[in-house]
Design a protein around this nucleic acid. Structure first.
Length: 421
RNA sequence: GGAAGCGUGGCAGAGCGGCCGAAUGCAUCCGCCUUGAAAGCGGACGUACCGAAAGGUACCGGGGGUUCAAAUCCCUCCGCUUCCGCCA
């Protein structure tokens, strides 16, 4: 949720942000008027309650006839209070609804436009020139007996798979390498719950436009997380945390579940787009004024990981229309995928400023000791999809795959993965 | 799954339906005392909204109800603890 103070003082900033996202700027006016009517409903109810309290005290002390008279009056007042409170809670609810409809304020400098209007911030490494026709990751992985798609489909349906043998080892190696980097950088390692309560899912902003992406267990009123960002964001919900020592950083490891509704026919081959994958996610709670710098740091850590797997990539600044509701800005790192002659997303880091934390009620004390809403940020360190880029970029004519140097220690020193005859 | 108990401020822990936003202790902070410290003494010490301020209102796990009035009574949900049963 956005800050209502900003809204009141600078409604035009919010309108501009809405326009940049391609969303309705008139929602801003609905919110303003909802805010106004809530404030007046509250003050009406407050003064009626004050009167009632006063009167109640008199009733307690009064005797006999005086008491009877006061009681009658108090009864009347009680009805008025009840009505005023009903109005207040209706106004409250209306405000919350309107409030939730507005996405986070877009950060200055974000390119305007839709999905294709990103800015390329930089390109690192050169796509390799192949002296042979490169295989795609699925073919390579099947040759290595690293994945079993057919049985994945048999057991769980399309977009499910088994990582087998070296494939499973490779994923573990990648996760461990990411975790080790994170811990070395001062992150606290976390293995998080995969199921969360509705309030937490709601608080992270995933039940808005992306609600259809989320698996829901109706029977238990729980949601399967699409990223450990969700449980990590919820970790400090309703707390006032100490940030005097700098940002609090967590690295979460979880399986991630996504319905991929509406992506029929997209990326149907291999493990690029699947219903379940593993991910190491960085998550940071920091003072709002430090959020921009922290965002750059998260991006730098992502690039450090990408350097370790030695794949060509570029960094893009996602356009305003393509930002999630919670994100004020988002940088994606996209790795070169030879079989597609395209860059595909491997990491994504978002600065959610105070938007998530406001919903989740996460605060810290500022220099004066006053509570203030914190900023939250997240970024990817490794996912199952990384295997795609590693496979394709490091393949050799015989279908073997060279293991990037940094990853070898996590694979018992293996330097080449060779196809099983 | 069955039974019982519990859920109060950073922590511990009181709290007759009105005088309770809430005793007390610990922790924390500020003074005094001291060469310095400890102890001792005095004071401050939750969050949110409204208000220039004085002050007002709300919050005692969440929601609902009874009542003129609820931390206190009732219902319900959530969480925790213990016992029994079942089972990775």
């Amino acid at each position: 949720m956005i800050d209502l103070r900003t809204l009141r003082e600078n409604p035009d900033v919010v309108r501009a942000s809405q326009r940049a996202r391609g969303e309705d700027p008139s929602l801003v006016d609905s919110l303003l008027s909802a805010d106004e009517s809530r404030r007046s409903a509250v003050s009406r109810a407050d003064s009626l309650r004050a009167e009632q309290k006063q009167l109640g005290k008199l009733v307690g002390r009064a005797q006999g006839e005086e008491r009877t008279a006061l009681l009658a009056k108090a009864k009347e007042l009680a009805a008025e209070v009840k009505a005023a409170e009903a109005e207040q809670s209706a106004a409250d609810q209306a405000l919350t609804e309107a409030h939730k409809r507005i996405a986070n304020l877009v950060e200055d400098g974000v390119p305007h436009g839709g999905e294709d209007d990103y800015t390329v911030l930089k390109t690192v490494g050169q796509p390799r020139e192949f002296e042979f026709t490169p295989r795609d990751h699925l073919e390579l992985m099947e040759g290595l007996r690293a994945v079993d798609m057919e049985r994945g489909a048999k057991v769980s349906g399309s977009r499910f798979y088994f990582l087998t043998g070296i494939g499973a080892q490779l994923q573990l190696a990648l996760m461990n390498m990411a975790m080790q980097q994170a811990v070395a950088a001062g992150f606290t390692m976390m293995i998080t719950p995969s199921l969360v309560r509705p309030e937490i899912m709601e608080g992270t902003g995933f039940l808005g436009a992306h609600a259809t992406e989320v698996y829901r267990l109706r029977e238990d009123d729980l949601f399967l997380v699409g990223t450990s960002e969700v449980p990590l964001a919820g970790y400090h919900a309703d707390e006032i945390i100490d940030l005097s020592g700098g940002p609090r950083r967590y690295a979460g490891w979880s399986s991630c579940y996504r319905r991929e509704a509406g992506s029929y026919g997209k990326d149907t081959r291999g493990i690029i787009r699947v219903h379940q994958f593993d991910k190491i996610e960085m998550f940071s709670f920091c003072a709002p004024e430090q959020a921009r710098e922290e965002h750059q740091r998260l991006l730098a850590w992502e690039e450090e990981m990408l350097a370790k797997v030695e794949v060509p990539y570029r960094v893009i600044d996602t356009a305003s229309g393509d930002l999630g509701a919670s994100a004020a800005r988002k940088f994606d790192c996209e790795a070169w995928v030879p079989s597609q002659s395209a860059y595909r997303e491997l990491t994504s880091t978002s600065n959610c400023t105070t938007f998530q934390a406001r919903r989740l009620n996460i605060r810290s004390r500022d220099a004066d000791g006053k509570p203030q809403t914190v900023a939250t940020l997240n970024g990817t360190l490794a996912t199952t999809r990384w295997i795609v880029a590693i496979m394709e970029n490091h393949q050799q004519p015989d279908g073997s795959v060279v293991v990037p140097r940094a990853l070898r220690p996590y694979l018992g020193g293996q330097d080449v993965l060779t196809p099983v005859k």
